[in-house]
């Protein structure tokens, strides 16, 4: 029933995009969603608030839409997307754990349309079929206590150093950082996404250390947990520093894996046109600078020019190591089953 009107709207948007492409910035002002609502999944907490004010608030101001984010973890967001397939209550999904690939393969998302800045994003940061786009990147690496570890760690191999014993924490591999840590340990000891064995071997040596599940535990881990070193990211390092904890971020020589913060539109979304326009707003250099400034997330749009005071703090997108997400996703379930038995047991 909604398909005919939906198609017409799509067509109109595409038409508008093609005819006014040279005046892209003028287009944004011309679009009006006054009185309509956009529902997006969000990451919760301060991250969600910052994204709201850096992206959605200016977007709403420019278009008249009313955007809200519903807090949920990426895995839960995907489960929700699956449960509501065919009749999505959430138009725009944001993921941080590679769920966009599942969403595409399960037919839960639809190709982006009318996102004028999609062309500016490098090929590796978007779906070849245009189902999703990476609008920010979080650099992973090592967070350590400056007061306890005077010499900055340089490698994932440092986690096996005896002097850190009893003061190491790492995330369970149901957490995206956990699975990246496993893959990077494998790489550090001669393995890869295809040969995870060295990763499990290395992790077994520190299986007695503190294992946590969620980033929300980080402040207490460094506070009351007597933890000195753990694999995590720039964004959380910045949050911990803001909270007054003496921590620093180190880029391991094996490379910093990148977490893609992606956005996609649910198939059959009632407000697909607003969602597409909002994704376009996410790719705006102004928005990306604001995200880098407030969260230390790396901009995915190479057109973005960071101010001088931020260039040292936020690694540039072309400096990050990239993992083979398709392979990791394909093996994730079996790795988790194995990890539950060999590491967490």
């Amino acid at each position: 029933m909604g398909t005919s009107s939906f198609d017409r709207r799509q067509l109109l948007a595409a038409l508008a995009a093609s005819t006014t492409l040279p005046f892209a910035s003028g287009l944004a002002r011309a679009q009006s969603f006054t009185g309509r609502k956009l529902v997006s999944s969000g990451f919760g907490g301060s991250t969600m608030d910052i994204i709201q004010s850096a992206v959605f608030t200016p977007f709403d101001k420019a278009t008249g839409a009313a955007s809200t984010q519903v807090p949920m973890q990426s895995a839960a967001a995907l489960a929700r997307m699956k449960a509501e397939a065919g009749n999505p209550q959430i138009d725009l999904f944001q993921f941080s754990g590679g769920q966009e690939a599942f969403a595409k393969s399960e037919g839960l998302s639809q190709p982006l349309s009318g996102v004028s800045r999609l062309g500016q994003i490098p090929a590796g940061l978007k779906d070849p079929d245009g189902h999703w786009v990476t609008w920010a990147v979080i650099a992973e690496g090592i967070i350590y206590r400056k007061d306890k570890i005077p010499t900055p760690p340089t490698s994932y191999k440092d986690f096996l150093k005896p002097e850190y014993k009893g003061h190491i924490a790492f995330p369970a591999i149901t957490n995206g950082y956990g699975i990246d840590f496993l893959v990077m340990l494998a790489k550090a000891f001669g393995g890869s996404e295809d040969n995870i064995e060295p990763g499990f071997e290395a992790m077994k040596q520190i299986k007695g250390e503190t294992i946590f599940k969620a980033a929300s535990d980080l402040p207490t881990l460094f506070g009351q947990g007597d933890i000195w070193i753990m694999p995590y990211d720039t964004g959380n390092t910045f949050k911990l520093q803001q909270a007054g904890l003496p921590v620093a971020f180190a880029t391991p020589k094996e490379g910093s894996p990148a977490v893609f913060i992606t956005a996609c539109v649910a198939k059959g979304a009632k407000n697909a046109d607003i969602a597409n326009a909002a994704i376009d707003a996410m790719l705006k250099p102004e928005a990306q600078v604001e995200i880098a400034r407030t969260m230390r997330w790396t901009a995915s749009n190479p057109e973005t020019k960071l101010p001088a005071d931020l260039t040292g703090e936020v690694p540039s997108v072309d400096k990050l190591a990239q993992l083979d997400r398709d392979k990791i996703n394909a093996k994730r379930a079996s790795w988790i089953e194995r990890w539950n038995r060999e590491i967490a047991r």
Binding site: A75, T210, I211, A344, R345
Partner: peptide
């Protein structure tokens, strides 16, 4: 309980939400 104190409820969550089984 974190990662080690796995109980039925967390196992169900893991299968349903993390592994989509």
């Amino acid at each position: 309980g974190g990662a080690r104190a796995n109980v039925m409820a967390t196992a169900i969550y893991e299968q349903a939400i993390e592994l989509l089984d």
